[in-house]
Design a protein around this nucleic acid. Structure first.
Lengths: 175, 175
DNA sequence: ACAACTGATTGCATTTTGCAATCAGTTGCA
DNA sequence: TGCAACTGATTGCAAAATGCAATCAGTTGT
């Protein structure tokens, strides 16, 4: 399951990295959902990835240099997956992809609010988000307080839509 | 082979449109290569798509609203495929994808020069390119002379690299 | 001691993919 | 008229990917 190298075209090579139905979904959940453990990714995504496919893609993304794996000090069997700089720089692509999908595809309102906020925020917001991800996954220093992160503001926007659509119902499957 | 709708997430829905190894390759060849016929797409791409897969993807992209098909007046069996606005607005995504691949993947110099020029040109160049595609595929008016198109300048850049790498050898498989 | 949870792995049926060969109709040329 | 080349596909088939359920060994909390 390694890279084919059908040609040296940048678009082709990019497709060989995440030209499948699951790799970008996993990266999305790590980037926007803050998921870092196998179980979180397995049970957290709306698209219900199978455990063998998740294991395969995590392995593949590590081989490609998009993820790294480390032991979790709180649990001897637990592994923490981290994004590499290579994966973090996908943020603008995900932002554009979300913006495009929001225009042309039958997206649901509550799931597209994040894409809308990210599009409205533009490149400055993407840069801020990438810096937060670098802090979170690569350990680089950051001066953003935990309650003022881009991810928190995206999540707040999501919850506002959910609350408006179902007032009083306190259920949040994505929390 | 229609859309799954695993979830209403914009990124997921986008992946269901071109989360495979061939759909974006076909769109790339139509957008950057100017290919509009089955045979051009079949023989023109470096990645050697099989004819049944090409037929399947063309059909699928039409069902999804990314392409339209029309009869070619010069040949009763010939079909001309056109990009829709939905497909034309992928240009920024392809630009970002090419830029990302150029940084992180083992691209070849002659095939990545187009991505580099497109990245350097930025959003203004993308807009100009999209206008040219609208003129070419949707018949909208345009005042750009045929020799000053974005595609022509990308092609010129490509040929300059090829000429520099193999001076005197007049072969150009992409012409 | 024991149930729940950790990151996986295995087996298996179904689906998708990719390659080679082939198709019928159209065109250009001798 | 005859025939080769070209048009957009389609078919058969082997290989690969997918998705589901069951299972695994080790760890943790009670």
């Amino acid at each position: 399951m390694s890279i084919d190298r059908r040609s040296g075209c940048p678009i082709n090579l990019s497709l060989e990295v995440f030209g499948d139905r699951w790799s970008l979904i996993i990266l999305r959940d790590m980037i926007f959902g803050g998921k870092r453990h196998f179980r979180d990714l397995l049970n957290g995504s709306l698209e219900r990835i199978a455990s063998n496919i998740l294991a395969d893609r995590l392995k593949r993304l590590m081989e490609l240099g998009m993820l790294t794996r480390a032991d979790d000090p709180t649990h001897k069997q637990k592994a923490i997956y981290s994004l590499t700089e290579m994966a973090i720089t996908l943020v603008p692509i995900l932002a554009y992809l979300g913006a495009w999908g929001r225009v042309w595809l039958p997206v649901s309102e509550e799931l597209s609010i994040r894409a809308e906020l990210l599009e409205k925020g533009g490149p400055p917001m993407w840069e801020k988000f990438m810096d937060e991800l670098r802090h979170e996954h690569l350990g680089t220093p950051s001066d953003t307080p935990p309650d003022a992160t881009v991810r928190a503001s995206l999540q707040a926007g999501y919850e506002a839509v959910v609350a408006r659509k179902a007032p009083g119902a306190g259920c949040d499957p994505d929390a």
